[in-house]
């Protein structure tokens, strides 16, 4: 369908608005630093097989080496003699992978349901809102634990489970945007030109609804990373991969004697999630013309 062909082109925020938003973003130091930090994290994750070619779960040295004690193991070793630095680097890979994939899946699902509900309204909207509420009624983490417990504990199922828990947020946001945008004069004008519903949704309304969605995407990545860490901490995630959460979980019992085993991956989580949230704030400020006009 023509509407789908046009989609790629549509998804690009207009050039000029992009330039203005980019300038506004550059003037925000917190956002720039956060973005730089996240890019480093991505680089680290991509480089993990080169930096630590060995399995991070293999025992490589004497256990309980403290950070700085041995230059070969800058972040020390854990109770089984596994390299903490290798664990953190490989954990970055898992955390970012889960974060981005769960966000992409959740946003896609939310976009689909929210756009249809918000655009058509009426009974379609009522039915879809009820459907969204089914996912919002149980406490989200309990739902997540149940979903993972039912399925196999693998990274892919963790991603799907997190997406299923977080998509209602995206769906509600998209629905609200579409509800207000469908009343705009340009949507009426588009109908007056003979455009069909699919085309109006994808080409006319969606690009206008993107800025708040981009902002919420960064927060959703942070939420997904936290959820994955919590699952791993409880030992519900894939036992064959190292993640920040599983490292904290393993170090928990040694908190009084070797606190760095929890602190090192903990700091990684805190910094990443903080950076994602600050990036979200900065994007919000730069993509929202009303806010950036005040600066």
């Amino acid at each position: 369908m023509a509407a789908v062909v046009d989609m790629a082109e549509t998804l690009a925020v207009p050039q000029e608005g992009r330039r203005r938003a980019f300038r506004a973003f550059l003037s925000n130091p917190a956002g720039v630093i956060s973005l730089a930090f996240l890019l480093c994290a991505v680089a680290l994750a991509l480089a993990a097989p080169h930096l630590y070619p060995e399995d991070p779960l293999s025992m490589v040295a004497r256990p309980f080496l403290w950070p700085g004690q041995n230059a070969s193991y800058p972040l020390g070793t854990d109770s089984l003699g596994r390299d903490v630095a290798a664990g953190v680097v490989w954990g970055t890979r898992i955390s970012l992978l889960v974060g981005f994939c769960a966000m992409a899946l959740g946003i896609s699902l939310g976009l689909l349901v929210g756009a249809v509900a918000g655009y058509f309204g009426g009974r379609v909207d009522d039915a879809l809102v009820k459907f969204i509420e089914i996912f919002q009624t149980p406490p989200s983490f309990v739902l997540l634990v149940v979903l993972v417990a039912i399925a196999q504990p693998a990274i892919s199922t963790v991603i799907v489970a997190i997406a299923l828990v977080t998509w209602p947020t995206a769906a509600r946001l998209v629905r609200a945007e579409f509800r207000s945008l469908r009343e705009k004069d340009f949507v009426m004008a588009a109908r007056g030109l003979g455009y069909g519903h699919a085309r109006i949704i994808v080409r006319e309304i969606l690009p206008n609804a993107l800025p708040p969605l981009i902002v919420s995407a960064s927060v959703l990545v942070a939420t997904a990373i936290l959820m994955e860490a919590a699952l791993s901490f409880l030992g519900l995630s894939d036992p064959n991969v190292v993640s920040w959460g599983s490292m904290i979980g393993a170090g928990r019992e040694l908190l009084r004697t070797a606190w760095y085993l929890c602190a090192v991956p903990g700091v990684a989580i805190v910094l990443t999630v903080l950076a994602l949230n600050l990036l979200g704030d900065a994007l919000n400020d730069s993509l929202n013309p009303r806010v950036s006009a005040k600066r």
């Binding site: 925020v13 207009p14 608005g17 705009k184 004069d185 340009f186 009426m188 004008a189 588009a190 109908r191 007056g192 030109l193 003979g194 455009y195 069909g196 080409r203 006319e204 690009p207 206008n208």
Partner: peptide, 26 residues
């Protein structure tokens, strides 16, 4: 059938030129 007529053989100009164009498309 109406969609084929609208914008092709029968066109309409709306009241508000300021808001009747999509702001994100050239």
């Amino acid at each position: 059938a109406m969609r084929k007529v609208r914008g092709a053989r029968l066109a309409m100009i709306f009241q508000e030129p300021m808001t009747s164009l999509n702001p994100v498309l050239t």
